[in-house]
């Protein structure tokens, strides 16, 4: 089993993405809203004459669990969603999981 952790903008339409991912064969899918520091998205803004560096943004973190056979399809589904919505700068990471038989 593998886990994909992807960071998308908070405005992501989770319903259509969920349908796409389950059709691709993922086992489970969860979302969390997080405060994220992303090196690529640091910006400096001026507020009342004072410059401030904004380091943190809100992001939607997806945790997707998929089997070895379907992980490629899950990544493909995320790529297709990213292209369709025109989302730039998606960060995603993949981890191995051990299966626990209950």
């Amino acid at each position: 089993m593998h886990k994909i952790e992807a960071f998308l903008p908070p405005s992501t339409n989770v319903d259509s993405l969920e349908e796409t991912l389950f059709a691709a064969g993922v086992v489970s899918f969860s979302t969390t809203e997080m405060q994220v520091f992303d090196r690529k998205e640091m910006k400096t803004v001026k507020y009342r004459g004072v410059e401030r560096v904004i380091r943190h943004n809100r992001k939607l973190k997806l945790e997707i669990i998929a089997g070895k056979d379907t992980i490629g399809l899950a990544i493909g589904a995320l790529r297709a969603y990213q292209k369709k919505e025109g989302i730039q700068g998606v960060s995603a990471f993949i981890t191995d999981l051990e299966i626990f038989e209950n």
Binding site: Q35, V36, R39, F93
Partner: peptide, 18 residues
């Protein structure tokens, strides 16, 4: 997060808190 602010210096890709 301010207590472990030194994490910003390690060149991490993503640092998130919840």
């Amino acid at each position: 997060l301010a207590d472990i602010d030194f994490l910003h210096e390690i060149g991490a890709e993503i640092i998130g808190s919840l």
